[in-house]
Nucleic acid binder design. Sequence first.
DNA 1: CTGCGAGTTCAGTATAACTGAACACAGCCA
DNA 2: TGGCTGTGTTCAGTTATACTGAACTCGCAG
Lengths: 273, 273
Amino acid sequence: MLQTVQKAAQVLRLFTPQQPEWGVTEVAAALEIPKSGAHALLRTLAAEGLLQRTGNGRYRLGWTLFELSQTLLDSSALLRAARPIMERLVAGWGETTHLAVLVDGQVLYVEKLQGDRALEIVLSGVGKRLPAHCSGVGKVLLAHQPWENVLRIVETTGLVSFTPNTITTVEQLRAELERVRQQGFAYDQEEVMVGLCCAAAPIRDESGQVIAAMSLSVPAYRFYPNQQRLTTAIVDAARRVSEELGYYQEDWAWGNGKRSKSRSSGQATSVLT
Amino acid sequence: MLQTVQKAAQVLRLFTPQQPEWGVTEVAAALEIPKSGAHALLRTLAAEGLLQRTGNGRYRLGWTLFELSQTLLDSSALLRAARPIMERLVAGWGETTHLAVLVDGQVLYVEKLQGDRALEIVLSGVGKRLPAHCSGVGKVLLAHQPWENVLRIVETTGLVSFTPNTITTVEQLRAELERVRQQGFAYDQEEVMVGLCCAAAPIRDESGQVIAAMSLSVPAYRFYPNQQRLTTAIVDAARRVSEELGYYQEDWAWGNGKRSKSRSSGQATSVLT
DNA sequence: CTGCGAGTTCAGTATAACTGAACACAGCCA
DNA sequence: TGGCTGTGTTCAGTTATACTGAACTCGCAG
């Protein structure tokens, strides 16, 4: 499992908006390795363009990461498919939509569109992470993971409490994820922030795998009166994105099993050819 | 120089918009290493989130790269400082502006704004690379590199010819870069595409280092009549961005030496305290 | 059913990476 | 100005790492 590469990745993950610049000694202390080792890692990463040296011998993230990210976005159909549908959602409701993926057991926000009627959600943001057990998108994404994965995640990150409504026990989480998987959507009822609710639904790729989740965030006082309409709206929007990605659900409201056949192009594997 | 990390970075750089998905065998062939080695690299990178496995055992870029890129953009003052000034430039001229950095001896486009009067420049694009010897931004960036670096770059990538005007000999390049450095801006006179010209100027950070270049691209028939005004416009815009980054040039038109003092905040190092 | 090609695993060996101390350099305080 | 503490950087020896190449499994096609 190439420990050297693991360490290099650890180094990259040290760089955050809070501390975007690191020196050799700091990295050595953070990873608990000798200075010379940290030095070698930083030098190599800088030589490869993944980091860049500042004048004073410290390091920042390198532009190659920007390039790779653009390549990712360019080659990923997800954002291209989701953005117009999110825009329509925002235009119709005036609220905030999120698009998120699961990375390393946490929710990574990939896109966020704010409506004119929306309240500012400062916690979420494009490129930011949040724990998965509390948000709507997080619960959707966890619900479609093997339970053992969920357990591992919970054991490492714990079930941090944000509000009185946050899920804090494994048993609660298990039951909630079970329900989310079966009904095909999730609610966040003031679990991450008092006064904020959301409805979220899964997005599947052509193989039927859940690769992302979409949500519509709404102030609590506007959520409960419109819960039903909100639910169908987000479920429908997520389904449309999934279809754009080549997924076609077998029979809605029952089967969450195998796919039948894609309506998208570039898919002619099995029978004839 | 941690060869394992170098190989890992090589693997990442294999992923392009043209081929965003790689299998073990393909990677092994591309890097000329045994399959098991490629397998270990891919597995490790995927475990770290820098890659993701598709269902069929192939690999794509991972969302962690998106996260890192967002952190880079968030912590880099460059784009934040440049964007409004580029917008004003576009609003005033109706042409296309580019913002680019030098990565690995090539020009990496970081931002691109198109005006309403502009012609579509298909070659450039955010996240795309081009050789440095032909474009305006490229010549600006090379001009402020040590000549030995430039030589190394030229020896590896060569001086590819795009149009009859493209610089193709080292001597031409040397003279041009010398002029660009002294006059503080560069022209591209149909060197990358027939009918397309541009003027470009360097952007410096608070230490005086050239970290990026900005350009204004114009059809040839509109370039020559307005060359003087274009030049002052782009030089002025780049200077404003540099000042935003904390650079204050000593005395314009002569000294390119040390800085005197920043007018930006967060800088009170030397005398008192 | 068989063969080819994909991805994956494993044990032994060669070599790459880690260690820790010494070096160079800058800024800061006396 | 002169040490002093804190950087980043270098190096040689040793350990433990990563590479090798063949064997294995699985899916698809003939």
